[in-house]
Design a protein around this nucleic acid. Structure first.
Length: 652
DNA sequence: GCGATCAGCC
DNA sequence: TATTGTGCTGATCGCA
């Protein structure tokens, strides 16, 4: 072996045929082939850099596009009226991001396949423009092909306009076709479906310095015209795929209307008590300062506690504590690791508390205040519909889906979330939705019956796993069983379960085995869904949301195992996501239909929050509960628990 | 600007 | 044999 290694490691220094150094120069390359490779790999900046843009057929298409810019209101109104008699229209608005809640419109393009019309707010004022397009947006006979209808809808709400068109949104369609695509841009879609290169006008950079390069600004209408002219053809192709994947219900009845629901949630926002947050932050600060001093004293040195690197050096080198785990760059200092050595030095609990408090202060106390809109006094988070691999929605700027709740101190932040005057919160959350979905799709009757009979599911699992009767289950056993239940959903192994509930690995393995033999259908499901995923390359939810899992074919063991867990978890988490989306659409319609003042303002995966007018509380409670529980018919019935409170803290 | 680490939620 | 629970977003550090 040593000889073999030596041979492998020896550099061959003599080789014939390379006498001329010029042979090593880069020669001409096959442009077409390189372009295909780069396109395939999405090396778009290389394509640009090397001037590989194809030109042939593109030119023809561009010349076929018929675009007109309209610069006075009367002509625009006339054209819009004409267009409102059409059946199928494409629409492409461009917004400028400002502090205003409905973004500011810059340009809007509308048209049929034959011709597209553009209007700019530079020549026609925004309000008149909004009034003009109302005839189109509020017509139920038109199918509107859009890109990012949510953004258009928040703008509509600002201008007191509704959208009643039949919708087809290219971004959302693509999300259902491939939930894992990294971005859903118009140029990306047009490249994928039509092989056409289009470009979107660059957003003007607001960087203060240097205006030279950015000012080049080609005629935006020219670019936009080309972009909107691809909508119709992309629509045809996506429509087909969605239909063939049995996603019509999910797309037309869930995701598209949901887009408007999310738009309105963003538009209305969540009222926040700024003063409360500031006082809360000050309170934290007082304690943080004191902890800081204690830590410096115990370490006999000042250092940056926020730096895991510096902290690691202090704890594990200077103070000689035992490191239990390593990361790829050094010592592990996360809460799990520190908790294992919590008794070895009094500095450890201080650090843990310091971490908790600084998190609360910077992310929540300070972070949330920054997001309060000065005009509305409310926080207008963005709800993204095309981010997650499982179908959940995500929330950013700020993330309202991770507001603390577990620790008492953190939970107090929820007292800053208040309703507008004369309103309260109705808060409804699904009870055990993922386990009910699990019971439903596995067909396990023991589990289903337990849910039907309203039995406490963790206690039941405990009695099965530990082989004791239901009334002999201790709180400790129940806690472990709860971990087992969640672990099953995530596709857990004995190692992690053991660590989670603090038993030996063997013990944990026995729990899992007990569980799977008590619920044989669950074992079957886990095996079958992985098999399905391997054969088809994807798994799907109850409503045919699809997730491709290329990891299942990976040569790498770890990656493949990850693929298996994903295959087991996605149909469960994803179906639960489908269900609450259905519920949101139903609740939203019902509030509208009854002309209520109450508004859905937040979703947190299994929970809905409605800012409710005091005189509508009883009605809203009823609407939320029945619509959530009837969102899907499961053989383990859905249950939603509803409560009312005058802050988010109280409503839970 | 970006990866790594940590921490918050379901 | 080696490894080990899904899905997210944000703050901070430290390097390039």
């Amino acid at each position: 072996l040593a000889y073999l290694s030596r041979e492998l490691g020896t550099i061959i220094r003599e080789k014939d045929g390379f006498s001329d150094i010029n042979d090593f120069k880069r020669k001409d390359f096959n442009k077409d082939e390189l372009l295909t490779i780069f396109k395939d790999l999405e090396f778009n900046s290389f394509i640009k850099k090397m001037g590989l843009e194809s030109s042939g057929d593109e030119q023809e298409i561009q010349e076929a596009i018929c675009c007109e810019t309209i610069s006075n209101l009367e002509s625009f109104e006339k054209i819009v009226n004409q267009l409102s008699r059409e059946k199928l229209l494409s629409i492409l608005p461009v917004f400028k991001k400002t502090g205003r809640v409905g973004n500011m419109l810059e340009i809007i393009g509308i048209g049929t396949e034959e011709k597209y019309y553009f209007a700019s707010t530079e020549t026609i004022d925004e309000i008149s423009l909004a009034k003009a397009v109302k005839v189109i947006l509020e017509s139920e006979d038109i199918t509107l092909i859009s890109y990012n209808i949510k953004e258009l809808y928040t703008w509509c709400l600002y201008h007191n306009t509704e959208i009643h068109c039949q919708l087809f949104d290219l971004m959302i369609a693509e999300y259902l076709i491939d939930a894992l695509a990294s971005s859903y841009t118009i140029p990306g879609l047009s490249r994928k479906y039509l092989g056409i290169e289009v470009e979107m006008p660059k957003e003007k950079k607001r960087k203060g310095r240097q205006i030279e390069l950015e000012q080049v600004e080609e005629n935006p209408v020219e670019l936009l015209g080309k972009a909107i002219s691809t909508f119709r053809a992309i629509y045809e192709k996506q429509k087909d795929i969605i239909d063939k994947s049995k996603q019509n219900y999910l797309f037309y009845d869930v995701e598209l209307p949901l887009s408007l629901v999310l738009g309105s949630m963003e538009y209305y926002g969540f009222r926040v008590d700024k003063q409360y947050l500031e006082e809360y932050g000050a309170r934290l600060d007082y304690r943080i300062k004191s902890l800081e001093q204690t830590i410096y004293m115990l370490a006999c040195e000042e250092f940056n506690i926020n730096s895991p690197k510096q902290l690691g050096v202090i704890l594990f080198e200077k103070m000689g504590l035992k490191a239990v785990k390593k990361t790829k760059t050094g010592y592990s200092t996360d809460a799990d690791s520190l908790n294992e050595i919590i008794d070895s030095h009094e500095i450890i609990p201080c650090i843990l508390e310091y971490r908790q408090l600084t998190k609360l202060k910077s992310t929540y106390a300070e972070g949330l205040v920054k997001e309060i809109n000065p005009e509305t006094g409310r926080i207008h988070s963005s709800f993204n519909q095309t981010v997650t691999a499982t179908g959940r929605i995500s929330s950013t700027e700020p993330n309202l889906q991770n507001i603390p709740v577990r620790t008492e101190l953190g939970r107090e932040i929820r007292q800053a979330f208040i309703p507008k005057d004369g309103y309260v919160f109705v808060d409804a959350d699904y009870s055990q939705i993922e386990l009910r979905v699990l019971a439903h799709i596995t067909g396990d009757e023991v589990l289903q019956n337990a849910f039907r009979d309203g039995i406490d599911i963790h206690t039941l699992t405990a009695s099965q796993v530990f082989n004791v009767s239901m009334n002999n289950v201790t709180p400790d056993m129940r806690r472990s069983a709860k971990a087992v239940n969640f672990g099953i959903i995530y596709g857990i192994g004995d190692f992690s379960l053991a660590k989670d509930i603090g038993v030996s690995r063997k013990e944990a393995a026995r729990y899992i085995e007990n569980y799977l033999s008590t619920y044989p259908r669950i074992r079957d499901y886990m095996e079958n869904t992985v098999k399905f995923g391997k054969e088809k390359g994807y798994v799907e939810t109850m409503f045919h949301r699809v997730r491709h899992i290329p990891e299942l074919k990976s040569p790498n063991y770890q990656v493949r195992e990850f693929g298996k867990r994903v295959a087991m978890n996605t149909p469960i988490q994803g179906s639960a996501a489908d269900i609450i989306k259905i519920a949101m659409v139903k609740v939203w319609h019902e509030l509208k239909k009854n002309n209520l003042k109450s508004r859905l303002i937040l979703q947190v995966h299994d929970e809905l929050i409605i800012e409710t007018a005091i005189d509508e509380v009883e009605q809203v409670k009823e609407i939320v509960k029945t619509n959530m529980e009837s969102a899907a018919e499961l053989s383990a019935p859905l249950v939603a628990d509803v409560s009312v409170g005058s802050t988010w803290f109280e409503a839970k």
